[in-house]
Design a protein around this nucleic acid. Structure first.
Lengths: 139, 139
DNA sequence: GCTTGACTTAGACATTGTCCATTGTAGGAT
DNA sequence: ATCCTACAATGGACAATGTCTAAGTCAAGC
């Protein structure tokens, strides 16, 4: 678990209580939290941590490539600590639950040159949408 | 071009000046506008149209399946009038330009049952990211 | 041309995110 | 161990986007 902290320290990240708490929150829960959810959990461990710091720290972690930003809907961005294994997402249209998925096939090779419009393609995100078993049962 | 207006009228949509203007703005420009951009263009034709009405009308068009909502980033949702041909998007990471693309292959069949977690899958969105020729030249 | 219920309006409000000036502090230097 | 200083945290204002509501307006059917 402190892999993340070790890596960060090794990159010259100045370690503060706030950053440690944010990193631990992300590292501890392998779900996809919003910035405010991260803040809420961080506050239970370090009550005086500010919202701005959480936003800053999350932004730094994204820049460092340690977490991914996921925007599956119009609402808040979510933060995905599983940045080291490429994957896509499956989202429940009703409750918003998110699962990581690993489709077969290579979507990059599915985009012919004629459809690239001269862009230099760097990646692709896939978001599958559907209804999760819980919501289907409730309906 | 008034295909859209005809279809809407045929579905019992009450036709008002505001709705007509919003539909015309979307129908006229085959780019992906934000709600506020739609509002700005609508205002030039109908100065007293309100922001709330534009939001309402866009929401109704989405519900009716006449336009698609596209969230390619954390910023505003964009509205895609090309709802009748399935397609995906290619976004410039620098300037935010969006192109419609049509990858080959079927991403739905690329998700094995073992990766579906019991979800009933209804669709998939793909967002290719890269740098457009303009931004690449400017760099 | 009435009537009526759906539509529009303006602006307050909510949510999410960013900025900035001030204060605090981690970690190297002494 | 203590001091310095650059970097980080704070909190509160601000910005961008979107939603809601109460009151007024109007399209479409009679």
């Amino acid at each position: 678990m402190s892999d993340l902290l070790e890596r960060l320290r090794g990159r010259g990240w100045r370690m503060t209580a706030q950053r440690r708490v944010v990193a631990e929150v992300l590292d501890g829960e392998h779900v996809h939290l919003t910035a405010d959810e991260v803040h809420a959990r961080a506050v239970t461990r370090l009550p005086e941590i500010s919202r701005a710091t959480v936003y800053n720290t999350l932004g730094e972690l994204v820049t460092l490539g340690e977490v991914l930003e996921v925007s599956t809907d119009r609402r808040a961005k979510r933060y995905d600590p599983n940045a080291h294994r490429p994957h896509h997402h499956l989202v429940c249209a009703q409750c918003g639950a998110i699962r990581d998925v690993h489709p077969s096939g290579d979507p990059l090779s599915d985009l012919p040159a004629s459809e690239r419009f001269g862009f230099t393609i760097s990646g692709v995100e896939m978001t599958y949408r559907g209804v999760c078993p819980n919501c289907a049962a409730a309906a």
